[in-house]
Write a protein that binds this DNA or RNA. Structure first.
Lengths: 132, 132
DNA sequence: GATCGTTGCGGGCATATACCCCTTATTCAT
DNA sequence: ATGAATAAGGGGTATATGCCCGCAACGATC
């Protein structure tokens, strides 16, 4: 019979786990994609959209849109870089505050997921993301 | 320092693998989500949107939209069920033909991905999707 | 048979994601 | 120095996905 599609399996797992993280972060009004973005901004700030895209391995245009969302939430500032083509992103105070509030929620969820999966399968995730 | 987020890792892997399947299926004009949907329709036809959503573990409204896409591609037929509330989906001839064409492309990609991952990680991936 | 709770869909809204094309800015080779 | 190639963004388009709300149909109960 038909083997399950590896891709479909992976997407399903990603959806389910994503929903867990989203629920964990919901109390402060951000989701896991936004949390991940804010962390990347904090690590690199001020950082261009292209650079962010490289870091998070997302399309440049996707970055532009995702950044616009957190900008609308009032969490980041967008400026022009020295290179006049670049749009550089940094956290504003609100963004920093939200990130600090989010971190413990994220950590708790991260631990729960780790428990759900167990060490072997958890290691798989790291290996998978390395492979690509 | 900051541990990588399990969710972000998973999403990244899913994006990357998804892109491989999408590229493999591109010659016949469908993507992996649509392929997966067409297979589910064939297995269950005629099948209601709610039932499909349960099978694929997707939100009902998502199913409605995804089905509309393959309908626009001319691959499925939508009818009313006996229960007048139900919209039931079946493949039309074109849908069957496309599915038959897609299968070998999908299988090749599936094998390539399996090789990339190796048996151990592949097994873990199966376990992972079972967890949900 | 009228009513009420349940179920199935569709539409609205929002986000994440990718691709393509266009404009503008920078860089590089001649 | 100048013209070509390249890089950064922005906007358009499209799909996948989820939540919420409202409408319509169904079924059980009175």
């Amino acid at each position: 019979m038909s083997t399950p599609c590896h891709c479909v399996q992976l997407r399903k797992a990603a959806r389910k786990i994503g929903a867990q993280y989203d629920a964990a972060l919901a109390p402060i009004g951000i989701n896991i994609a936004q949390f991940s973005l804010l962390r990347a901004v904090e690590r690199g700030q001020p950082v261009s959209l292209t650079e962010l895209g490289r870091t998070l391995d997302l399309d440049r245009s996707t970055m532009g849109r995702n950044v616009r969302v957190v900008e609308k939430l009032g969490l980041v500032r967008l400026d022009r870089g020295e290179d006049q083509r670049e749009a550089v992103v940094s956290l504003n105070e609100h963004g920093v505050a939200v990130l600090r509030l989010a971190e413990p929620l994220w950590e708790r969820c991260q631990r729960q997921v780790a428990d759900q999966l167990g060490p072997t399968r958890l290691q798989l995730l790291g290996e998978l993301s390395q492979l690509f």
